[in-house]
Simulated assay, not measured.
Amino acid sequence: MAFELAPELQRDCIELATWPLCKVLLMNDCQYPWFILVPQVEGLREIIDLDAQQQLLFWQESKQLSELLMSVFEPDKLNVAALGNMVPQLHVHHIARYVNDAAWPKPVWGVNPAQPYTEAQLVELKKALAL
């Protein structure tokens, strides 16, 4: 079987980049700088399902994305989490949070309806990230 992105991620996200292991996605909700790493390996549900080399590469890519988000967005807190309760395909959220964001201090899920990015916002975001 070839790798396919879960339908929910296809529906809710914008693909920004393909790194050696992971796809880098942007959640289409401009209320939060919300990114998702998805290892391009078929059938993954948990990080422990990656082999040792893939785990190392995953953590390197997570670190790379985390450092990029800290540099570009300068958040008060960076939330990194792999939940998978609604989407079982392994995907890891990287969310830049601010004490004055729309959901603080709660998790971002379900607090407010998503507000999709405009084309202009996406252009600026991609430029800032240089992905």
Rank of each mutant, 00 (worst) to 15 (best):
E42H: 11
F73I: 08
D49H: 13
G110H: 01
P116F: 07
L78E: 11
E74I: 07
P113V: 14
A114D: 09
S62D: 09
K77F: 02
P33A: 06
L37W: 03
K106I: 00
K63Q: 13
N85V: 00
R45N: 08
P113K: 06
D76F: 08
E119V: 10
S66I: 05
E119M: 00
V108P: 06
P116L: 14
L65K: 04
P88Q: 14
G110F: 04
N79A: 07
P116N: 14
L68V: 12
L44K: 04
V108W: 07
L122Q: 10
L65M: 12
V87F: 04
V87I: 14
E67I: 04
E42F: 02
V87Q: 04
L50I: 06
V80F: 05
N112S: 09
E67V: 02
A81R: 03
N85M: 01
E46H: 09
W109Y: 09
L37S: 04
Y117R: 09
Q89D: 05
Q31N: 15
E74S: 14
H94I: 05
F58W: 08
W34Q: 12
R45T: 15
D51F: 10
P107W: 02
E67Q: 13
K63G: 03
A120R: 10
D49P: 01
A102C: 10
A102T: 11
W59M: 11
W34A: 07
I36D: 01
V111C: 08
G110T: 03
S71N: 11
K106E: 15
V72L: 12
D51C: 09
P75C: 09
K77D: 02
E67H: 11
I47T: 12
A52D: 13
V123T: 15
V92A: 06
N100E: 11
E124K: 09
L50D: 00
Y117D: 11
L56V: 10
Q54E: 15
A114S: 13
E46D: 14
E74A: 15
Q31G: 13
L122T: 10
E67F: 07
P105S: 03
N100P: 00
Y32H: 15
Q55A: 03
D101W: 03
W104Y: 12
V72N: 07
M70S: 12
Q89T: 08
L68R: 12
E124F: 02
I48D: 06
V80D: 00
V41L: 10
L44A: 00
L83M: 10
